[in-house]
Design a protein around this nucleic acid. Sequence first.
DNA 1: ACCCATCGTTGGATCGATTCAAGAATTTGC
DNA 2: GCAAATTCTTGAATCGATCCAACGATGGGT
Lengths: 356, 356
Amino acid sequence: MDRSTRPVRLADVAKAAGVSHGTASNVFSHPEIVREEVRERVKATAEAMGYAGPDPKGRLLRAGKVNAIGVATNEPLSYFFDDPFARVMMASISQACDATGAGISLVSAANSEHLAWNIQSALVDGFIVFCIEGDSRLVELARERKLPFVALDLDSENQSVAAIGVDNIAGAGLAARHLAEFGHRRFAVLTLPCAEGGFGPITQAQAETSLYAGTRDRLRGYFAELSRFDIDVSKVPIYETVNDQESVWAGLDHFFASSETPTAILAMSDKMALHALDWMRQHDIAVPGDVSVVGFDGVPEGATSKPPLTTVAQPIAEMGRRAVKAILENEGTSSRQLMPVDLVVRASSGPAPTRS
Amino acid sequence: MDRSTRPVRLADVAKAAGVSHGTASNVFSHPEIVREEVRERVKATAEAMGYAGPDPKGRLLRAGKVNAIGVATNEPLSYFFDDPFARVMMASISQACDATGAGISLVSAANSEHLAWNIQSALVDGFIVFCIEGDSRLVELARERKLPFVALDLDSENQSVAAIGVDNIAGAGLAARHLAEFGHRRFAVLTLPCAEGGFGPITQAQAETSLYAGTRDRLRGYFAELSRFDIDVSKVPIYETVNDQESVWAGLDHFFASSETPTAILAMSDKMALHALDWMRQHDIAVPGDVSVVGFDGVPEGATSKPPLTTVAQPIAEMGRRAVKAILENEGTSSRQLMPVDLVVRASSGPAPTRS
DNA sequence: ACCCATCGTTGGATCGATTCAAGAATTTGC
DNA sequence: GCAAATTCTTGAATCGATCCAACGATGGGT
């Protein structure tokens, strides 16, 4: 109907109803202090004029609090709904938000120029930053907003930013020890990204220079433990993936093309491990009969996969809860929290096959 | 460091740098029109004072556009990350948002009082409303904001609101016909919620008075088609669920406790159908040998379940894309769009067993 | 009849930025 | 050397609400 005409403002309603804007405001925000007769008149006028209620844009400026927390990532937005780890984390974050009535704003952008703008103009009270691929630019941007923020899974060396992470070295150690104790001696490692972009086989030295400390620490954890079992880690093949099916399968093609095929696969995420299980099934390799696979994260899909996945479980729910708490309560925790991890033994790992 | 002191404002920076706030504003928003020398001085001052950049709260009021679309639901926020249908829909919505650089705000609340407030104060340019449980109060609230909005899957009778939905009657008909043509004659129906709260066996008459037209239409679609095969639909047991495992399993317990056990299950969502498959496996009932199951939605999990699920697929990705487009482009589409559905035949349906 | 509470209402100040017409400073043209 | 063109800068107005100190009515008590 009344298109092209700009929306009705509270002041318009006030004028039409013959009261001051102060009183009109009270009708909506503190109805109990306005005399009933006036209240009804103003409400009726508002209704008649098609007033949409106090505009949050205006309210916001005065109130100062948005009542929403931002969750930011470098990945496309759909990462939050596609990636198993992100999904579980988001579910726990959203439960915590529900409990306090806070909303969630998803912030991201395909290209990094958009990213900057999106972070700078996000209407939120604080940020939870997903640093799965550890780009420090994202952290930098979020920090410049000078709002409370927490990084999840951040490079463990940047001690100055608030972060909630897990003990990657210890966790990786648990996985490696578990397999070594089963008698495995021929290992192969599927890593998370080390550098921008590509994937392919890399050397230990290359992995050590990884941009992402999470990747680096997990590798160190694996190798430290394997060394303890007198395994020559310099011979363990490492394949860098981008945490998707294509690169994982390429990695396995690579491992199993060599003459000394591995009997144990260490995967740095459950997502990779689950893709690996698919690959094994397609290639008629028995798990854990021929090859054992251990993941990392502890996503629920691992419990129902074929076979169920042995993995290093992060306390994802607890991490999400703490992140939200940190944003909502604090005004700038700068501490780092390292959460413990748990080895969850299921059916994807077993004794090493007797050498044939 | 400088805690307890309120944040630096643009005006503070301007004063400190000895320029007007107008110029200071230009330094950040239109750097190219400010002389370089001045620009650098202001930037340096801002940096030194710990200015966090123009506060979006202020900018917003003037600009008018938030650049984010709100997605609202009655369910808890974690619904977006837990429910398979919602996940796929959100993934496609987020892709569309990514493409235009818009953000996503998730709006919800446990109790309905919070819901009202959250909708009223959400900082968004428009709403996409998930009406899975078709509560019209949610639609009402969203509409009162007088922002562009689109309902997904809304009751098909409320012609006045913009909505994107599927042809539930035709879709349900496809599922029913598929099973009837396989020779099935003993059917049972698992419905989505019909009323607030509970679950349990209901009559056709009760289902007809369902609060939710989606539920009603699917049932009508089933029954219309079954009648065409001379099946006495008044004898077909109907069990109302709340779309979770517990209620689905209770429904199956109920169906299979009777003397005339069904050979074909019509489930109004894939989620229910997948829970049904689990139940069958646990009770050693062969699918599709003893019982056939057909779902509704077409979520990806159906393709990899055991056995893969025959279902009525909605064009979820396309629906998400259109919803976003409607919000971002239009200033109030009030048309309804009915999308076509597709029967996807997989291995959970087969010929009716010969009567034993 | 007067004073004091109480209750409602008013209008101005404020939140933090952007925008724009007008003016000042500088450069260019003739 | 003066007018015109150009480039920056300024300060006021605006966006849409909330908050608060002050003020004007009422009603009750003595």
